[in-house]
Nucleic acid binder design. Structure first.
Ligand SMILES: NC(=O)c1ccc[n+]([C@@H]2O[C@H](COP(=O)([O-])OP(=O)(O)OC[C@H]3O[C@@H](n4cnc5c(N)ncnc54)[C@H](O)[C@@H]3O)[C@@H](O)[C@H]2O)c1
Ligand SMILES: NC(=O)c1ccc[n+]([C@@H]2O[C@H](COP(=O)([O-])OP(=O)(O)OC[C@H]3O[C@@H](n4cnc5c(N)ncnc54)[C@H](O)[C@@H]3O)[C@@H](O)[C@H]2O)c1
Lengths: 216, 216
DNA sequence: TGGAACCTGTGATGAAATTCACAATCGCTT
DNA sequence: AAGCGATTGTGAATTTCATCACAGGTTCCA
């Protein structure tokens, strides 16, 4: 049921997930004026196995120098390139409620070259309201607006009952990948990639780990 | 770097994650007044492989009846029990900014028997302010307050720079597992389980999938 | 009562991801 | 210019996870 549409050498999804972690880490290293880092340093500071780090990178070429390590700035740039966030990546947010608003105001996105180009809602009370740098637009105009901004990423922050519908709309408007916060499994065409974020799922796993001896 | 501190029969983490999905699904089925469901139905409606579903459950005993399937209510109850959310599970939220506020107001938590018992912040402008059913408390009082409420789960919604510090505080206050939203890798004792939620990571994976031929 | 349709639980098998382990390379020191 | 410690990149080994496939239950109906 999955998504490896194009690329040839089949990069593991967990590798991609870690890539984002590395990028974050490298940005912090840059801020700390570290110029070079070795895979063992990475392991010490992030807990990610050194060989794992090297292998992850090896899917995309050679990045380091034996005996020395990796140049922080260069590696940062190359990872950004791989993830296609070396230049601003436009995103649309659908649903400007509690969660959508938090995202719209989140500066971390910009730091990683994600740019919320438009936010939509269906509630007349919200449409037209300024929110951060944006004005909330009418969800009915998704298609028309996206013809201009060309977002291929949509973030869905509407209630579960509306999620499938707005996903369909977004796809019609040219969106190719979706980050879904609604607790529902979206049905989408093969070519569309969806990732779900579920706080409940995370909490459930944690709760499970509250092992046997409840009070101590 | 990881978390499988205790349990004996070694349940795969992905299984635990799916358990929460099943629970959500079963709640929706209950609302739709479905009484019984088979693993093949689950596959049809969620996309999760039927054998996977059965195997996931098999780690915890036998739940179904051959030829019939699973009783929705019973399975729901048993999964909730496994995940320790069969009765209200108290949680503390630290950081009542954009994200923390969204969580505090999120009704989905209650539906899954998670209960935000207290929310803390350090900003004097926020302390004392009502928020949903709660009043924001002073972060300096985490320990004292938790002696009363006994939360073992903490959700960290403070800026990265403060995250390690509040994690330490939470652990001192008796917290055993942490859901961390700050983009930083927390250093915690072995026995503490941490899960990180990173929107940036999710977006990065999606962005990667915007394959080759950029404009169409 | 017997047989067909339908399901579960699980050992066996296969696929994917992680980790190991080592030859090859680099820069420094003498 | 040769030797050494550090570090990379990557096949091979290992571990973890997903799927297959089937022996047994269960129900229904004739
Ligand atoms: N708030 C949280 O902490 C949280 C946590 C996890 C998951 N979620 C999920 O995220 C989603 C949004 O949560 P929230 O708390 O922001 O809810 P919310 O009710 O605050 O916001 C939902 C917004 O979507 C808008 N909306 C409804 N139908 C729409 C449509 N068809 N088109 C466009 N906009 C539409 C509403 O007007 C509202 O502004 C929900 O599915 C929720 O389950 C929220
Ligand atoms: N907003 C988002 O959409 C989003 C998305 C992903 C990740 N995050 C991460 O979540 C965290 C919170 O994000 P946010 O948008 O809510 O930020 P925010 O600035 O709106 O809120 C942070 C809150 O933490 C409080 N705080 C700071 N130091 C504290 C301390 N020591 N103890 C207690 N409270 C303290 C601040 O007073 C503030 O109220 C950040 O780490 C951010 O990177 C946010």
């Amino acid at each position: 049921m999955n998504s490896n549409s194009s690329s040839s050498p089949k990069v593991p999804i967990p590798t991609l997930e870690r890539l984002a972690t590395y990028l974050r880490f490298l940005i912090d290293l840059e801020a700390a004026q570290v110029e070079t880092i070795s895979s063992t340093d990475v392991e010490k500071q992030t807990g990610i196995n050194a060989a794992q780090f090297r292998k992850d990178l090896s899917y995309f070429g050679e990045f380091g120098k034996p005996g020395v390590g990796y140049n922080v700035l260069e590696l940062q740039a190359r990872i950004a390139r791989i993830l296609k966030i070396d230049q601003l990546q436009p995103i649309m947010v659908i649903g400007a409620g509690n969660l959508g608003s938090a995202l719209i105001g989140y500066p971390g996105l910009t730091e990683h070259k994600f740019h919320i180009a438009a936010a939509f809602d269906r509630d007349p009370a919200k449409i037209g309201r300024p929110q951060g740098d944006l004005v909330i637009l009418n969800e009915a105009d998704v298609r028309e607006v996206n013809a201009e901004i060309g977002a291929r990423i949509a973030i869905i922050c509407v209630p579960a009952a509306a999620a499938q519908e707005v996903a369909d709309t977004a796809i019609l408007a040219g969106v190719r990948v979706i980050l879904n916060f609604a607790p529902i499994i979206l049905k989408v065409p093969e070519r569309i990639v969806v990732r779900n974020v579920s706080f409940l799922q995370e909490l459930a796993v944690l709760s499970y780990h509250l092992s046997g001896e409840s009070q101590k």
